[in-house]
Write a protein that binds this DNA or RNA. Structure first.
Lengths: 114, 114
DNA sequence: CTCGTACTTCGATATTTACCGTACTACCAA
DNA sequence: TTGGTAGTACGGTAAATATCGAAGTACGAG
Protein backbone atom coordinates (compact mmCIF):
# COMPACT_ATOMS: atom_id res chain seq x y z
CA UNK A 1 0.00 0.00 0.00
CA UNK A 2 1.30 3.42 -0.93
CA UNK A 3 1.36 5.97 1.85
CA UNK A 4 1.95 9.69 1.68
CA UNK A 5 3.84 11.81 4.13
CA UNK A 6 1.94 14.23 6.33
CA UNK A 7 3.36 16.72 8.83
CA UNK A 8 2.53 16.27 12.51
CA UNK A 9 0.39 18.92 14.09
CA UNK A 10 3.35 20.47 15.84
CA UNK A 11 5.33 20.63 12.60
CA UNK A 12 2.78 22.71 10.75
CA UNK A 13 4.27 26.09 9.88
CA UNK A 14 2.24 29.26 9.58
CA UNK A 15 4.27 30.39 6.56
CA UNK A 16 3.46 27.22 4.71
CA UNK A 17 -0.20 27.09 5.68
CA UNK A 18 -0.80 30.70 4.66
CA UNK A 19 1.10 30.23 1.40
CA UNK A 20 -0.96 27.12 0.69
CA UNK A 21 -4.22 28.98 1.30
CA UNK A 22 -3.14 32.08 -0.61
CA UNK A 23 -3.52 30.29 -3.94
CA UNK A 24 -7.08 30.35 -5.32
CA UNK A 25 -7.00 26.81 -6.68
CA UNK A 26 -5.77 25.37 -3.42
CA UNK A 27 -8.22 27.47 -1.42
CA UNK A 28 -10.98 26.19 -3.68
CA UNK A 29 -9.98 22.61 -2.88
CA UNK A 30 -9.88 23.32 0.85
CA UNK A 31 -13.25 25.10 0.77
CA UNK A 32 -14.87 22.22 -1.06
CA UNK A 33 -13.51 19.70 1.40
CA UNK A 34 -14.88 21.87 4.19
CA UNK A 35 -18.35 22.08 2.67
CA UNK A 36 -18.79 18.49 1.50
CA UNK A 37 -17.70 16.66 4.57
CA UNK A 38 -17.02 13.26 3.06
CA UNK A 39 -13.80 12.53 1.26
CA UNK A 40 -13.15 13.22 -2.40
CA UNK A 41 -10.86 11.76 -4.99
CA UNK A 42 -8.66 14.31 -6.73
CA UNK A 43 -10.36 13.64 -10.04
CA UNK A 44 -13.73 14.89 -8.79
CA UNK A 45 -12.55 18.48 -8.39
CA UNK A 46 -12.46 19.37 -12.08
CA UNK A 47 -9.78 21.98 -11.67
CA UNK A 48 -8.90 24.32 -14.56
CA UNK A 49 -5.37 22.90 -14.73
CA UNK A 50 -3.68 19.79 -16.02
CA UNK A 51 -3.46 16.57 -14.02
CA UNK A 52 0.17 17.09 -13.12
CA UNK A 53 -0.49 20.62 -11.93
CA UNK A 54 -3.41 19.35 -9.85
CA UNK A 55 -1.07 16.82 -8.25
CA UNK A 56 1.26 19.66 -7.44
CA UNK A 57 -1.47 21.67 -5.71
CA UNK A 58 -2.75 18.68 -3.72
CA UNK A 59 0.78 17.88 -2.63
CA UNK A 60 1.34 21.48 -1.55
CA UNK A 61 -1.79 21.34 0.59
CA UNK A 62 -0.82 17.98 2.07
CA UNK A 63 2.73 19.03 2.89
CA UNK A 64 1.42 22.17 4.55
CA UNK A 65 -0.83 20.01 6.69
CA UNK A 66 -4.07 21.41 5.30
CA UNK A 67 -5.37 18.16 3.84
CA UNK A 68 -4.93 14.43 4.45
CA UNK A 69 -4.47 12.15 1.43
CA UNK A 70 -4.94 8.41 1.67
CA UNK A 71 -4.85 5.88 -1.09
CA UNK A 72 -7.93 3.83 -1.63
CA UNK A 73 -7.15 1.54 -4.50
CA UNK A 74 -5.87 3.66 -7.33
CA UNK A 75 -7.62 6.81 -6.09
CA UNK A 76 -6.66 9.14 -3.30
CA UNK A 77 -9.22 10.19 -0.75
CA UNK A 78 -8.70 13.77 0.32
CA UNK A 79 -9.97 15.26 3.55
CA UNK A 80 -9.50 18.50 5.39
CA UNK A 81 -7.33 18.27 8.51
CA UNK A 82 -9.70 20.57 10.30
CA UNK A 83 -9.19 19.26 13.82
CA UNK A 84 -5.43 19.37 13.48
CA UNK A 85 -5.44 22.85 12.01
CA UNK A 86 -7.88 24.08 14.64
CA UNK A 87 -5.68 22.67 17.36
CA UNK A 88 -2.54 24.19 15.92
CA UNK A 89 -3.86 27.56 14.70
CA UNK A 90 -7.29 28.12 16.27
CA UNK A 91 -9.73 30.06 14.17
CA UNK A 92 -7.46 30.44 11.17
CA UNK A 93 -9.19 28.01 8.87
CA UNK A 94 -12.67 29.25 9.74
CA UNK A 95 -11.61 32.85 9.17
CA UNK A 96 -10.23 31.98 5.74
CA UNK A 97 -13.35 30.06 4.74
CA UNK A 98 -15.59 32.86 6.00
CA UNK A 99 -13.51 35.37 4.05
CA UNK A 100 -13.83 33.23 0.95
CA UNK A 101 -17.61 33.17 1.30
CA UNK A 102 -17.66 36.94 1.73
CA UNK A 103 -15.54 37.54 -1.32
CA UNK A 104 -17.77 35.49 -3.50
CA UNK A 105 -17.83 31.74 -3.57
CA UNK A 106 -15.61 29.58 -5.65
CA UNK A 107 -12.22 31.26 -5.86
CA UNK A 108 -11.70 29.50 -9.15
CA UNK A 109 -13.46 28.87 -12.43
CA UNK A 110 -13.73 25.15 -12.92
CA UNK A 111 -13.75 24.15 -16.57
CA UNK A 112 -17.23 22.72 -16.11
CA UNK A 113 -18.52 25.98 -14.62
CA UNK A 114 -16.90 28.21 -17.23
CA UNK B 1 2.62 66.50 0.17
CA UNK B 2 3.24 63.02 -1.18
CA UNK B 3 0.39 60.59 -0.87
CA UNK B 4 0.34 56.85 -1.34
CA UNK B 5 -2.41 54.77 -2.89
CA UNK B 6 -4.46 52.50 -0.66
CA UNK B 7 -7.21 50.09 -1.69
CA UNK B 8 -10.74 50.68 -0.46
CA UNK B 9 -12.18 48.14 1.92
CA UNK B 10 -14.30 46.57 -0.77
CA UNK B 11 -11.32 46.22 -3.09
CA UNK B 12 -9.28 44.15 -0.70
CA UNK B 13 -8.70 40.69 -2.16
CA UNK B 14 -8.28 37.58 -0.07
CA UNK B 15 -5.56 36.27 -2.39
CA UNK B 16 -3.53 39.40 -1.91
CA UNK B 17 -4.06 39.69 1.83
CA UNK B 18 -3.11 36.05 2.44
CA UNK B 19 -0.07 36.34 0.17
CA UNK B 20 0.98 39.48 2.01
CA UNK B 21 0.69 37.77 5.38
CA UNK B 22 2.35 34.56 4.22
CA UNK B 23 5.76 36.23 4.14
CA UNK B 24 7.54 36.22 7.51
CA UNK B 25 9.01 39.70 7.14
CA UNK B 26 5.68 41.22 6.26
CA UNK B 27 3.90 39.29 8.99
CA UNK B 28 6.52 40.56 11.41
CA UNK B 29 5.73 44.13 10.39
CA UNK B 30 2.00 43.58 10.74
CA UNK B 31 2.39 41.90 14.13
CA UNK B 32 4.50 44.74 15.45
CA UNK B 33 1.99 47.31 14.30
CA UNK B 34 -0.69 45.30 16.04
CA UNK B 35 1.19 45.14 19.33
CA UNK B 36 2.52 48.69 19.50
CA UNK B 37 -0.57 50.60 18.71
CA UNK B 38 0.94 53.95 17.75
CA UNK B 39 2.42 54.48 14.30
CA UNK B 40 5.95 53.62 13.28
CA UNK B 41 8.34 54.90 10.68
CA UNK B 42 9.73 52.21 8.36
CA UNK B 43 13.23 52.79 9.70
CA UNK B 44 12.31 51.68 13.23
CA UNK B 45 11.66 48.08 12.19
CA UNK B 46 15.29 47.04 11.72
CA UNK B 47 14.48 44.37 9.19
CA UNK B 48 17.15 41.90 8.05
CA UNK B 49 16.97 43.20 4.47
CA UNK B 50 18.18 46.21 2.54
CA UNK B 51 16.27 49.47 2.48
CA UNK B 52 14.94 48.92 -1.03
CA UNK B 53 13.70 45.45 -0.10
CA UNK B 54 12.02 46.89 2.97
CA UNK B 55 10.27 49.43 0.75
CA UNK B 56 9.06 46.57 -1.40
CA UNK B 57 7.59 44.71 1.58
CA UNK B 58 5.89 47.80 2.99
CA UNK B 59 4.42 48.54 -0.42
CA UNK B 60 3.15 44.96 -0.74
CA UNK B 61 1.40 45.28 2.62
CA UNK B 62 -0.05 48.66 1.71
CA UNK B 63 -1.32 47.55 -1.69
CA UNK B 64 -2.94 44.51 -0.08
CA UNK B 65 -4.74 46.83 2.32
CA UNK B 66 -3.03 45.49 5.42
CA UNK B 67 -1.30 48.72 6.43
CA UNK B 68 -1.81 52.43 5.95
CA UNK B 69 1.19 54.57 5.05
CA UNK B 70 1.17 58.33 5.42
CA UNK B 71 4.00 60.74 4.94
CA UNK B 72 4.98 62.87 7.90
CA UNK B 73 7.84 65.00 6.70
CA UNK B 74 10.43 62.71 5.18
CA UNK B 75 9.28 59.67 7.16
CA UNK B 76 6.31 57.43 6.61
CA UNK B 77 4.02 56.57 9.47
CA UNK B 78 2.74 53.03 9.20
CA UNK B 79 -0.37 51.73 10.87
CA UNK B 80 -2.38 48.55 10.73
CA UNK B 81 -5.72 48.83 8.92
CA UNK B 82 -7.30 46.66 11.56
CA UNK B 83 -10.80 48.11 11.40
CA UNK B 84 -10.92 47.86 7.63
CA UNK B 85 -9.58 44.33 7.60
CA UNK B 86 -11.94 43.27 10.36
CA UNK B 87 -14.85 44.73 8.44
CA UNK B 88 -13.83 43.05 5.21
CA UNK B 89 -12.59 39.67 6.50
CA UNK B 90 -13.78 39.29 10.10
CA UNK B 91 -11.49 37.34 12.37
CA UNK B 92 -8.78 36.78 9.78
CA UNK B 93 -6.21 39.18 11.15
CA UNK B 94 -6.72 38.08 14.74
CA UNK B 95 -6.40 34.43 13.77
CA UNK B 96 -3.12 35.13 11.97
CA UNK B 97 -1.70 37.10 14.88
CA UNK B 98 -2.78 34.45 17.35
CA UNK B 99 -1.18 31.79 15.16
CA UNK B 100 2.01 33.81 15.05
CA UNK B 101 2.11 34.01 18.84
CA UNK B 102 1.56 30.26 19.09
CA UNK B 103 4.31 29.48 16.65
CA UNK B 104 6.81 31.55 18.56
CA UNK B 105 6.95 35.26 18.47
CA UNK B 106 8.83 37.29 15.97
CA UNK B 107 8.60 35.49 12.62
CA UNK B 108 11.89 37.08 11.66
CA UNK B 109 15.38 37.61 13.02
CA UNK B 110 16.05 41.31 13.11
CA UNK B 111 19.73 42.16 12.72
CA UNK B 112 19.73 43.72 16.19
CA UNK B 113 18.24 40.59 17.74
CA UNK B 114 20.51 38.14 15.91
C1' DC C 1 21.11 77.02 -0.24
C1' DT C 2 23.28 72.97 1.41
C1' DC C 3 23.22 68.86 3.89
C1' DG C 4 21.48 64.73 5.91
C1' DT C 5 17.64 61.62 6.47
C1' DA C 6 14.00 58.65 4.88
C1' DC C 7 12.23 56.57 1.52
C1' DT C 8 11.45 55.37 -3.74
C1' DT C 9 12.64 53.94 -8.28
C1' DC C 10 15.20 51.42 -11.51
C1' DG C 11 17.71 47.69 -13.46
C1' DA C 12 19.67 43.41 -12.58
C1' DT C 13 19.65 38.80 -10.69
C1' DA C 14 18.52 34.47 -8.17
C1' DT C 15 15.01 31.75 -6.50
C1' DT C 16 10.52 30.06 -6.27
C1' DT C 17 6.14 29.11 -8.17
C1' DA C 18 2.73 27.53 -11.38
C1' DC C 19 2.24 25.27 -15.20
C1' DC C 20 2.56 21.74 -19.07
C1' DG C 21 3.30 17.18 -21.49
C1' DT C 22 5.35 12.76 -21.49
C1' DA C 23 6.52 8.78 -19.36
C1' DC C 24 5.87 6.08 -15.43
C1' DT C 25 3.71 3.25 -11.32
C1' DA C 26 0.18 1.03 -8.75
C1' DC C 27 -3.97 -1.03 -8.53
C1' DC C 28 -8.44 -3.07 -9.97
C1' DA C 29 -11.28 -5.60 -13.11
C1' DA C 30 -12.08 -8.51 -16.93
C1' DT D 1 -2.17 -11.03 -18.38
C1' DT D 2 -4.03 -7.28 -20.56
C1' DG D 3 -6.11 -3.00 -20.22
C1' DG D 4 -8.00 1.04 -18.03
C1' DT D 5 -7.99 4.44 -14.36
C1' DA D 6 -5.84 7.54 -10.89
C1' DG D 7 -2.29 9.66 -9.69
C1' DT D 8 3.15 10.57 -9.55
C1' DA D 9 7.76 11.86 -11.25
C1' DC D 10 10.51 14.28 -14.26
C1' DG D 11 12.23 17.81 -17.26
C1' DG D 12 11.30 22.00 -19.00
C1' DT D 13 9.38 26.83 -19.26
C1' DA D 14 7.28 31.27 -18.08
C1' DA D 15 6.08 34.32 -14.70
C1' DA D 16 6.22 36.07 -10.16
C1' DT D 17 8.82 37.06 -6.07
C1' DA D 18 12.58 38.51 -3.12
C1' DT D 19 16.65 40.47 -3.16
C1' DC D 20 20.42 43.95 -3.97
C1' DG D 21 22.97 48.43 -5.00
C1' DA D 22 23.06 52.81 -7.20
C1' DA D 23 20.81 56.82 -8.27
C1' DG D 24 16.99 59.82 -7.42
C1' DT D 25 13.31 62.65 -4.71
C1' DA D 26 11.27 65.16 -0.98
C1' DC D 27 11.59 67.31 3.11
C1' DG D 28 13.34 69.48 7.45
C1' DA D 29 17.25 71.57 9.82
C1' DG D 30 20.94 74.51 9.94
Amino acid sequence: MRTLKHPERADMRLDTVLAALADPIRRHIACRLNENHHDHACVTFELPVSKSTATYHFRTLREAGVIRQEYQGTSIMNSLRKEDLDARFPGLLDAVFAAQRIEGGTAVNTPAAG
